[in-house]
């Protein structure tokens, strides 16, 4: 787990600022960028996976039953999944905060 930037002492950085903890950007949650959120009607889902394929944020995961769920820690609410969903199973609605 990386510390916040302003808590590193100079000698705590790796030589050449190399980062060994790969993929640790996931510690940064982009979900709070959202102003709209996807709402899924799982009844309409045909399990085509286009939403998963087209998600720039890799925020959509496949479930056991072949349908998909949204990781709201990362979903930025761009709406690509809703626009590209052929059967119209995904709707974007205002995010309530």
């Amino acid at each position: 787990m990386a510390k916040p930037m302003d808590q590193y002492k100079w000698h705590e950085l790796n030589v050449g600022c190399v980062i060994e903890e790969i993929g640790n950007a996931s510690e940064y949650k982009t979900g709070d960028w959202r102003s709209q959120k996807p709402v899924v009607n799982q009844e309409k889902c045909i399990k085509c996976g286009l939403c998963w394929l087209f998600c720039p944020d890799a925020a959509i995961e496949q479930m056991e039953d072949g349908r998909y769920r949204w990781n709201m820690d990362y979903c930025k609410g761009c709406g690509i999944c809703a626009t590209e969903c052929k059967p119209g199973a995904i709707k974007m609605v205002e995010e309530e905060r």
Binding site: Y8, C17, I19
Partner: peptide, 26 residues
């Protein structure tokens, strides 16, 4: 450190003002 798939690392990340001084001091 080396660039190799057996032990992936990131080289050449950028530093925000919170870290640039520490990086250059090191």
């Amino acid at each position: 450190y080396t660039l190799h798939p057996d032990k992936p690392v990131t080289m050449g990340a950028y530093a925000m003002p919170e870290l640039y001084t520490e990086a250059k001091y090191a």
